[in-house]
């Protein structure tokens, strides 16, 4: 049974779904949206790589890449989450990248607000 047309249709369908994720990545509005969007794109990428392998007829050559992807994608997400943990308080002037809606944000403590004030303290004597 020739399944190739089926896989090709699937590839294109998944690509269109990816386009939807991409909209979320581009439009935002918060970083978390983008992170999730990229993560889903990553998962779809692994699926697509396997599908390309099937279409090519040598799926065993493509499996390793997907495994690496699955492992490494986790690291990226984790790093982004860690990063977010560090800066989880939004700077007052730029509400766009906040985790939650800007109004609900907790009080600014010590994180991003001193960015301007502490400019001098950040300087290293040349």
């Amino acid at each position: 049974m020739n399944l190739e047309p089926f896989f090709i249709v699937m590839v294109v369908a998944i690509l269109f779904l990816m386009l939807c994720n991409l909209y979320r990545v581009v439009a935002g509005p918060t970083v978390i949206d983008r992170m999730l969007g990229v993560n889903v794109i990553g998962i779809k990428t692994t699926v697509l790589i396997v599908l390309i392998g099937i279409i090519d007829g040598r799926v065993e050559m493509f499996i390793d890449i997907t495994l690496a992807y699955a492992l490494l994608n986790f690291i990226t997400t984790l790093a982004a989450a860690r990063f977010y943990q560090r800066i989880s308080h939004p700077a007052p002037s730029e509400p766009e990248e906040s985790l939650v809606a800007p109004s609900a944000g907790p009080e600014v403590e010590e994180v991003d607000a001193p960015a301007k004030a502490s400019d001098s303290s950040r300087k290293e004597t040349p």
Binding site: V25, R34, M35, G37, V38, I41, G42, T45, I52, F62
Partner: peptide, 21 residues
């Protein structure tokens, strides 16, 4: 936001990898 930029660059990298596959 630079964080967003970095994340989108990650998506770019996924896509180029797909292209190369």
């Amino acid at each position: 936001g630079l964080l967003s930029s970095a994340i989108v660059t990650g998506a770019y990298s996924f896509l180029i990898c797909l292209m190369w596959t």
